[in-house]
Design a protein around this nucleic acid. Structure first.
Length: 826
RNA sequence: GGGUUCGUGGUCUAGGUUGGUUAUGACACCUCCUUGACAUGGAGGAGGCCGGCGGUUCAAAUCCGCCCGAACCCA
């Protein structure tokens, strides 16, 4: 996040904030096919690739514009794109390196296959069409009694009936399954049956995934009818019977049915089953069918040679544990995902726009050769390997690998490449920001890869941010019409307001809702800041020499002390990525302490103070405003920059400045200042309430603080602000004091009286406040009558609330405030 | 079905780890106020059984259990 980058620059860290573009992938190919009205096999690979690059470049351009508009402080010198040969060459290098350390291997693996397009397609390309009409066939599988097997000899296996919509897959049947709780079949599990027409023997297994209510409650498992079959095949380590070829015809395994299409086979096999008496019944049914998104042909699942990367779970988890997760519980997601991994990572894709797998297959002996590091980057289908002849058989006939890599192979090495790998020694990046939706991909693969390639953590901290939702709380989408383009916000308000709204959305890890009202309040705050700066700039002399030792008054010391406290708090929040809390604290300070209180208090001095007095106020103002602008810079880079430059006495850019470090925490001044601010705002509020002008002169104001002050309070500015002489008095004001209420301190009474506490408090509250008050002042403790005993409460455990009333005949107004009593003589 | 996170005035949100007096702020709403940075401002007000039930405790928004509801990830 940009907030963090900007903040760390201010505190003096050397920040590398690169931007990478993950270009490759299916969505781009699809988009290009759509725009061009072509299929990727219609044009040569290279041409299609170029079209993708072109499209991606325009996308990147648009996104970069947005980022600039929003003020992202990206280090564009370190921009990279995974589609550039400089990048994907390194992706290949990491592949070669992982192949050398035996992470990479080839194996058969089921893929979605479109028989018409004759290509593998990704899950994302499979569209599920619901409610397709089909026929459900009920087929009898004869039981096999195995002679010589004692467990079977007692109870001879009987026939079992299954239901399927795909009789053409009988030849591929490798097992049968029922639900373990299905009473119809409990004693049959483990029995063997014979597949009709084809004769192979299969075992009945039990699995929770079987739907007992469907058909007969028993299903056949084929390689492969659907994804479920794939899971079972892997889980139970079943045989592989490939019954379809790539063009959708039955293979030799189907015996006499070889060469038929799927539909032909379905009809013929169904007819033969009927003829042989295996077909018990057929009924119409509705089913969901996976189809090719492009041609609507039903998808088949075929097993194809694929490239894999071994997932070493322990290694990944160990690496992940060394990383600090923010928020912590997000580690749990990765852990769960990692532990649940059943298959290794299939990295090969039968696509075009991606990093080519740098390998060749010898056409004569089948040997697979992986490229040497020196010849990278390389595009195998176009180039022969540097090695020349096959090391196994000496042949020079190579078939370049046409498969390409999963795009996560690109993006999962970005931390390495950013650091100059492989030339430079790798040091982990400090921070990785990413969304929680891609923990199982980006974070997972990056951990895997940096552990595998460099045996290191990729980054020290990983900050998981939430998704941004629309104003109505739903995920942004065109159909919901809650899509908010950042540009729209920038046009109507400003980029800084947009940034603030996002920052305030919530803490890291939680999804945040975009809210126009946050933009509104942010925009108001900006106006406020701008006006403050303008006012202060006006009050500062252009050629003002900083004073070595200004004659600060209490309020000056107060605002400076508060400011340094705020700087420390904000800094702490920023370090923990609590941007919401940081901005909140900052806003509160600027708006209320600085603008509402301090500015009002020093106006008198600024307008007509003596030179020395004025200088001190100017100096304090300058330091506070300058510090505030610097703290605001990460959130509102544009506004703070302009304001900072317009403030006389600042040099250069606010973004090149240092984080404020005023080092003037002054407890006494804060006590005095809080009192002054409170009195000023109480008097101001009273004037406002009574309809007086805020600068209406008063005869005299007397302040009686509740607690004795340890320090003298300087009323110079207060008198100016109140337009009246202000005196701080000790003791009790000469007005009637009427106790009206008692407030027990539960944290004292609770532990002291334990289970009696409720009773004590209740009794206390029924007492006359005057009695409580007198007992408290005379004895230092209060006696409370309970039902049959007397409880003694220490005086400090009870607060007596008193109200002041002016003695009759005197022209005085009594104001109660948080810090004490204020008497106003008009 | 499994996992994770969450449920706080009309809306959004802070606080929750460390239980304790009056639960924070913003936006919207109502009343009043042109006063020399700012009406994109200022002063004040109304509005909450802190999702529900139960438990621990003198005391629960906060800790524990269950339930209901939402979102996300996985199956």
């Amino acid at each position: 996040m940009d907030f963090a980058a900007r903040f760390h620059r201010l505190v003096g860290d050397d920040v590398l904030f690169p931007q990478g573009w993950d270009c490759h992938g299916l969505p781009t190919e699809v988009k290009v096919e759509e725009n061009q009205g072509i299929h990727r096999t219609d044009v040569p690979r290279e041409e299609f690739r170029d079209l993708c690059i072109e499209h991606t470049e325009s996308q990147i351009g648009a996104m970069r514009d947005t980022m600039d508009t929003l003020g992202f402080s990206i280090d564009w010198d370190h921009e990279f794109r995974t589609m550039d040969p400089e990048y994907w060459g390194e992706t290949q290098r990491s592949f070669v390196q992982m192949a050398d350390s035996d992470y990479v291997y080839q194996n058969e693996h089921p893929v979605n296959w479109c028989p018409r397009c004759e290509t593998a397609i990704a899950d994302a390309e499979v569209e599920t069409e619901e409610g397709i009409e089909g026929t459900l066939y009920y087929i009898t599988f004869p039981g096999v009694s195995e002679a010589g097997d004692p467990s079977d000899s007692a109870t001879e296996s009987q026939d079992i009936e299954i239901a399927t919509t795909r009789p053409e897959l009988l030849a591929a049947c490798v097992s049968m399954a029922v639900h373990p709780d299905d009473e119809r079949y409990t004693d049959r599990i483990g029995d063997t049956f014979e597949v009709p027409l084809f004769g192979q023997e299969v075992e009945l297994i039990a699995d929770d995934e079987v739907d007992s209510d469907f058909g007969t409650g028993a299903v056949m498992i084929c390689t492969f009818g659907d994804k479920q079959d794939v899971d079972w095949w892997a889980e139970y380590d079943l045989d592989l019977r490939m019954v379809f070829s790539e063009d959708g015809q039955l293979t030799g395994l189907a015996g006499e049915y070889e060469g038929l299409t799927i539909d032909e086979a379905k009809n013929e096999i169904a007819a033969d089953l009927d003829a042989e008496g295996y077909l018990v019944d057929r009924e119409p049914t509705e089913q969901n069918v996976g189809q090719c998104w492009r041609c609507d042909t039903p998808i088949e699942i075929l097993s194809k040679e694929q490239w894999f990367v071994e997932v070493r779970q322990d290694e990944i988890l160990e690496t992940a544990q060394e990383v600090e997760w923010i928020p912590e519980h997000m580690y749990g997601r990765l852990e769960e995902w990692t532990e649940g991994m059943e298959w290794d990572w299939v990295i090969s894709r039968q696509r075009v726009f991606a990093t080519p797998i740098p390998a060749w297959h010898c056409q004569d002996c089948g040997h697979t050769h992986i490229a040497e590091a020196a010849e990278l980057p390389v595009k195998p289908p176009e180039t022969d390997p540097a090695i020349g002849a096959c090391p196994e058989c000496g042949s020079e006939h190579w078939r370049g690998e046409t498969d390409v890599m999963d795009t996560w192979m690109d993006s999962s090495i970005s931390p390495l490449l950013v650091q100059g790998w492989p030339e430079e020694p790798f040091t982990p990046a400090t921070l990785r920001p990413q969304g929680h939706d891609i923990i199982r991909t980006w974070a997972f693969y990056t951990l895997l890869r940096s552990a595998a390639v460099e045996d290191q953590i990729p980054w020290e901290e990983i900050l998981i941010n939430g998704m941004v939702f629309g104003d109505d709380g739903n995920k942004m989408s065109k159909s919901r019409d809650n899509f908010v383009q950042p540009e729209t916000v920038v046009e109507e308000y400003s980029a800084d307001a947009f940034r603030q709204a996002i920052a305030l959305g919530g803490q890291p890890g939680t999804d945040i809702q975009f809210q126009w009202k946050e933009v509104t309040s942010a925009a108001r705050f900006e106006t406020k800041v701008w006006n403050i700066t303008r006012f202060v700039a006006q009050q500062l002399d252009e050629e003002r020499d900083p004073l070595p030792d200004p004659a600060y008054r209490d309020v000056d010391r107060w605002i400076l002390s508060k400011c340094s406290r705020v700087a420390a708090d904000v800094r702490e929040d920023m370090e923990q990525y609590r941007f919401d809390a940081a901005l909140r604290t900052l806003r509160n300070f600027v708006w209320h302490d600085l603008a509402d209180d301090y500015l009002e208090l020093v106006k008198g001095r600024l307008y007509e103070g003596r030179p020395g007095e004025r200088d001190a106020a100017q100096q304090a103002l300058f330091r506070t405003v300058s510090a505030s602008l610097r703290m605001l810079a990460p959130f509102a880079p544009f506004l703070s920059e302009e304001a900072y430059r317009s403030l006389p006495g600042t040099e250069g850019s606010v973004h090149a400045a240092d984080w404020p470090d005023l080092e003037v925490v002054d407890e006494d001044a804060e006590t005095a200042g809080d009192l002054i601010a409170e009195v000023a705002s109480t008097v101001r509020g009273w004037k406002s309430d009574t309809g007086l002008a805020l600068n209406a002169p008063l005869e005299r104001v007397e302040v009686y603080p509740d607690e004795d002050l340890s320090v003298p309070v300087d009323t110079y500015d207060l008198s100016e602000a109140a337009s009246a002489p202000v005196h701080i008095r000790e003791g009790v004001p000469a007005v009637e004091l009427v106790p009206v209420d008692v407030e027990p301190d539960h944290s004292v009474i609770g532990p002291k009286f334990r289970d009696q506490a409720g009773q004590v408090v209740a009794a206390l509250e029924t007492m006359d406040p005057g009695t409580v008050e007198s007992q408290k002042t005379v004895d230092g403790e209060i006696q409370v009558d309970l039902d049959n005993e007397v409880a003694v409460i220490p005086g400090e455990a009870v607060e007596v609330v008193e109200e002041h009333r002016a003695e009759s005949g005197e022209e005085v107004v009594v104001l109660d405030s948080e810090i004490g009593t204020i008497l106003v003589y008009e």
